[in-house]
Amino acid sequence: MISRLILQLGFLIDSVPLWLAPLLVLLGVEFILIWHIEQSINVVASEKPNQKSGDKIAIPTRDYKLLVSGMTFGILLSAIAVIQEFQISNIYAILLLFCGRAIEGVAAIRFYKKVSRFIRTREWGGDFRAKMKHKLTMLFIVVVGFYLIGYAIVHGPFLRSLGYTIQFVWTITTLLVTAIGLQWKLRPVREKFDRKLILGVILFVTGAELFNFAFIGQLVATIAGSIGYSIGFWFAAAILIRDQQEPVVMGLKYRIRDIRIWLRS
């Protein structure tokens, strides 16, 4: 709740320093690019020092790393050139925000699954201690953020002016809250994906969240975020229905079967 309130302040407060949000976005995209290029290269080649591995081309480790970094930096720099030429960094950030909110939209479906499971088994499941640790960490970050703002007001600013210090503390608090919150949401799929991919998603969503838009841009970002959330929700719902994993229906089936068995006996 408090963390949500902190994120909403983005309407009023700009994040500082100004290069932080674009840098986070680009770092995130770079990590995803590295993952993608590695996957693509691994189809035809493998990273093995001077030996053949099946039908794949063996590339020495150092060459493999140079190849991946050359490709990824090349693509990233060329794309930045296009973004810079057409001045579309805001539009790109809105797209990333859209993707981030779509991922958040799945959280509601997971909550539905949790409730359904509770109806069936009378158990909430999940690691309660881990959840508590996560919530307490978030609370700690928010409390420290407020404390630092209070300290700056009483004892004077650490950076430039009081306004700048408040903006800076708000930026760092938002950054940590968003990154840790997203890391928690992606926890169930951490095993299935490469670490670079997860880190990339966390970084680009955090960067998009901190991106400074003008008033109109902020409005468009909010609308795009809401649409993204809805699309994420319904996309996840469609997958759930298609996979026929509807727990409530399944739970009811089990109940009816139990009653039948009881009646027969």
């Binding site: 993608h36 060329s78 794309a79 296009v82 699954k113 996840a236 997958i239």
Partner: peptide, 28 residues
């Protein structure tokens, strides 16, 4: 430049779809 930018546009969308799919199917 345009091809690189197209890749940069499509990658986050594709990755998000992948993650959403896995998140729905993951155990609670």
């Amino acid at each position: 430049g345009y091809l690189s930018f197209a890749l940069l546009l499509l990658l986050p969308v594709g990755v998000s779809i992948l993650i959403i799919k896995e998140l729905v199917r993951a155990d609670i």
